[in-house]
Amino acid sequence: MSRLIKQWIPVLIAAITGLVVLAGYLIPSPLLIYYRDRLIEWAVIVAAFAFILGLFNILRVHGGRVVRLRQGWFYSLILLLVAMVAWVPPVLYGPSGTPTRQMLDYVIGPLGASLAALVVFTLALAAFRLLRVRRSAGAVFFILVVAVVLLGSTPLMGLEWLADVRDWIISVPGMAGMRGLLLGVALGTVITALRVFVASDRPHSEF
């Protein structure tokens, strides 16, 4: 009985749920669409509970670091304090209240944008390292293409012809490569999903 519950019930739930949702998108039956929508609603509710789990996980990991005074404990302390404070405006003023929007617009938004800006520097550093550690024809070609596309996007005088080269790179070889890549990804996605449907892949069960 225990084996049945731990092994087969999760597999059956996953397979049947997946098939009903997929069929609800492909077959225009009101009954299937009704069950598809209900199942998706349940998934959203479960995901919301997962966020509560996530919050407890953060409190546990960073709380442990603060209590044991491990490396970086001060940053963990700040994170914990912010986590405690950040839920106050939405609870008191609602998700679209002025203090909540101010917190999003003036604190979380700018912080996210500044982190995203760092990505440019890490990408540039990665390209520099590539030339240092991997001096292959592929690496040189990669850097050349990146340089042409970047310079072709700038309004520099005398480099207008590069914009045409950039457009050709993006729309011909770039697009061809991208489509090949996306076709492969789509196939991989379908096969991985089918593996879950036929219970060949069972990460959610005690097999």
Binding site: L123, R134, F142, L181, L182, G188
Partner: peptide
């Protein structure tokens, strides 16, 4: 990685890179 943006960012970093559908393997 499967996303083209991630692949572009990962290519300079490592030659042990699985691209696109290779992730599903």
């Amino acid at each position: 990685a499967a996303a083209p943006r991630a692949i572009g960012a990962l290519y300079p970093v490592t030659d042990r890179l699985a691209v696109g559908e290779e992730l599903y393997a």
